[in-house]
């Protein structure tokens, strides 16, 4: 008897709501949803919310909404995106970290399935040592590494993340077995920074932004950055100058669901291009210290494919996937 009442109530509410939602279909065609496949506060979330504001500023009529689907390095969001086949009003923020996470978590859905839209920004990585460290240059590090990889503890972010990949690439370039790297994973740059400032680990790897201030103040010393050339405002050689052929940018971009037709794809690309050309985005890029690396269309699709095969290779060589 109770249950019947409940059912009646449900039916009434459902009927009311059905009437309501019917009237709203007109506005939805113009709406854009941006998925941040991470919890609020992280880099992808920040990029998504910045983009939301920037799109609103160049296209005030458009309804833009950011939502979070956190978990497993973004692969949960990726799986959800793949389920929304053909949805031309949906973008997902992603980046290099997701490429690694797909491999490592053996995700059912890979990035080969989604529709690439644009690369937005990138940040280079920096390799530092504590001020008290005996390593003055990259050569000192390489020598010690070759002598005994176990004695060189490397602090960085999560296992299989960008920092770990840099460590693997560096070891490979230095002629050290990437499997032998004594990598100490930390839950973010802050924790790794603490280990470095306390002189508990030999070297640290993170985004330039995380360590730059402490390099300037002299508490940390930079051995090299993963950029192709020196970065203005930071006194540091590149890894290439130091003799390790490692170049890597931690990039972020947008992808869309699989199965988009050309018109829908062009539509999204045009919108993102318009956003990129607007003043609000330029201001945000400057404010956050990002590097603009805008790229769309086939070049970005090729870039994404190349990154996938590179990351897949090094993750296997580091023994991170069985």
């Amino acid at each position: 008897m109770r249950m019947r009442r409940l059912a009646v109530l449900a039916a009434v509410i459902a009927a009311v709501s059905a009437c309501g939602s019917g009237s709203d279909t007109g506005a939805a065609a113009n709406a854009l949803r941006i998925m941040a496949p991470a919890a609020p506060g992280g880099g992808w979330d920040q990029t998504s919310r910045t983009a939301e504001q920037a799109i609103k500023s160049v296209d005030p009529a458009r309804k833009v909404e950011v939502f979070n689907v956190p978990g497993a390095g973004g692969t949960i969001g990726l799986a959800q995106l793949a389920g929304d086949k053909g949805d031309g009003g949906l973008l997902m923020t992603m980046g290099l970290v997701m490429v690694g996470a797909v491999e490592q978590n053996k995700s059912q859905v890979t990035l080969a399935e989604v529709t690439p839209i644009a690369r937005l920004t990138e940040e280079y990585e920096i390799v530092v040592v504590p001020a008290e460290s005996p390593f003055q240059t990259l050569n000192d590090l390489v020598a010690a590494w070759k002598a005994d990889p176990a004695k060189v503890s490397v602090a960085g972010g999560s296992a299989g993340g960008t920092d770990h990949i840099v460590a693997g690439l560096m070891a490979k370039a230095a002629g050290v077995d990437p499997k032998q790297v004594n990598y100490i994973a930390h839950s973010g740059g802050g924790e790794a920074l603490n280990a470095l400032l306390g002189n508990k680990v030999s070297i640290g790897i993170s985004g330039i932004g995380e360590f730059a201030e402490h390099v300037k103040s002299g508490k940390l010393r930079s051995l090299g950055i993963t950029a192709p050339a020196r970065v203005p405002g930071l006194e540091s050689p590149t890894l290439k100058e130091g003799g390790l052929d490692v170049e890597l940018a931690n990039w972020r971009g947008f992808v869309a669901p699989p199965g988009l037709d050309d018109a829908a794809r062009k539509n999204l690309t045009d919108l993102v291009t318009k956003m990129h050309d607007g003043q609000a985005w330029k201001d945000a890029v400057a404010k956050n210290g990002w590097i603009d690396s805008f790229q769309t269309g086939q070049p970005f699709a090729d870039f994404l494919a190349a990154e996938q095969s590179r990351v897949k290779g090094i993750i296997a060589e580091m023994g991170l996937v069985s």
Binding site: A72, Q104, N105, S158, A159, G160, I184, A185, S187, L320
Partner: peptide, 9 residues
């Protein structure tokens, strides 16, 4: 969950 040190589930 994922083991933080090695990334294994």
């Amino acid at each position: 969950g994922i083991d933080q040190q090695t990334g294994q589930a």
